[in-house]
């Protein structure tokens, strides 16, 4: 994981993971639905930086997030930071110390739902590869 005492800004080429906590956020063709990137009543959205994190560590963060929210971790979808920096959006390092220095937020969502949906469709279209199913035991992200 990133050194909690020296958390760098999120670089454009960094790969970010968005945890999938609802089965209806994915499609059978391996893509994800825009709703995976909707913040709803909020104006920021949590992601986790792969930078300096072993895959087991990323999956463990996902499991912790799911457990805290009473959900199941279905998998992750990966997106490049540069793909999140569109229109009003940006990506900011938001470490949750001490447990998760790799936490970041996609910030700058507008309040109107139709504008949020529009941005979410673009983010979903920009994800890299198919979504990755969570391993039943810690394993590779692939």
């Amino acid at each position: 994981m990133i050194d909690p005492n020296n958390v760098p800004a999120v670089a454009d080429n960094e790969l970010l993971a968005r945890f999938i906590l609802h089965s209806n956020e994915t499609r059978s063709d391996g893509t994800v639905k825009p709703k995976l990137f909707l913040p709803y009543s909020l104006v920021e959205l949590s992601v986790n930086r792969h930078r300096e994190a072993a895959s087991d560590e990323t999956w463990q963060v996902g499991r912790d997030v799911a457990a805290a929210r009473g959900k199941t971790l279905y998998g992750i979808s990966n997106i490049r930071a540069s793909s999140c920096r569109i229109e009003t959006l940006n990506v900011a390092a938001k470490p949750i110390l001490p447990s998760n220095p790799n936490h970041a937020d996609i910030v700058g969502y507008p309040q109107k739902k139709e504008d949020q949906i529009s941005l979410a469709t673009k983010l979903a279209a920009a994800t890299e590869g198919n979504w990755v199913k969570a391993p039943s035991v810690p394993g590779d992200i692939g």
């Binding site: 529009s118 979903a124 279209a125």
Partner: peptide, 22 residues
């Protein structure tokens, strides 16, 4: 149809529709 050809409509209270297409 694919990630760059879709329409999504969100139906909320009071017959309100929020939509976006790509």
């Amino acid at each position: 149809r694919n990630p760059r050809n879709l329409l999504t409509v969100s139906i909320g209270p009071e017959n309100r529709l929020y939509w976006a297409a790509l």
